[in-house]
Amino acid sequence: MKEKEEKVLLEKVRELQSDGDDTRENTARILNEKRVIGPPLDEKQAKAEMSKRSRRTFLIGGAAAITAFFGWRWMPDDAKMSLLRRTLEFNETVGRFFYKPSRLAPEFPSERISPRRVNGMIGMEQEHDQAAWSLNVGGVYGADEDLILSLDDLRALPRTAMITELMCIEGWSIIVQWAGVRFSDFAAKYSPKTIDGSRPDVAGRPDKLLPYVSLSTPDNGYFVGWDTASILHPQTLLAYEMNGEPLLPEHGAPLRLASPTKYGIKQIKRIGRIEFTTERPRDYWAESGYDWYSGL
């Protein structure tokens, strides 16, 4: 009895009948929704036709599902890794295509500065010896050997301060005040070599400069690679101050990178060496399967 009732209801629904005289009640009528209904068939024909269609589509659908499932499941790990790695590189190409150095990260008022947060001491296990520290710079135009710079050499360059958000690849973020020298100001003074050997013009023709920058801790325990375009962003600093005081050892004293253009994993602490390179430099976390570019 109940089944019969439901069938009647179904029929009413299918035939788009309105509830009483109010045709506006019928949503399908309001939007002029159309239905495609085949010719009348008797019960047997309908069943046969439906079975035929079911068999075919379930076979096709089932085959597609099985292919997708086992294709992914049985795909060798190195093939999967290579596919995902190449996708990260494709994403990097897209990211670089749309990258504009004129786009700036928002800066915040000083009351928004977050409590400090330490996350990672790799390459800083040994105690920092300020007296023994110097910054070695390789790949500088007009220099055959590494330049050896002191903190005073860097302090002699224009000082820039900013309050920006530091994004960690883990998903958290904090607002930090940084002060130091813009990497672009540093590169204007100690310019990278160019790809064609011409005289570098850091501000005017950054595309002519060596395309990569390698940075590492004095013990070489931590190392990152940057693309030159990102490191020349006006908000990428070689920072020596944090939240209004000199960098603390756990935050990368005496000199670290600070930049809203990339995740924290790229903002290397306790920089010992900077080298401008032609080859894409090694990168600590990229070697553990993270995105080399990590551009925000």
Binding site: K7, L10, E11, E15, I37, P39, P40, R53, S54, F58
Partner: peptide, 26 residues
């Protein structure tokens, strides 16, 4: 569920001449 796989569903059309069904289509 089957209609989301095959695309088709069987509906009742008791006593409805084809002409009326065509009207529904329009």
């Amino acid at each position: 569920f089957r209609s989301m796989v095959t695309g088709y569903e069987t509906v009742e059309a008791e006593g409805k001449p084809p002409a009326e069904a065509a009207e529904v289509k329009a």
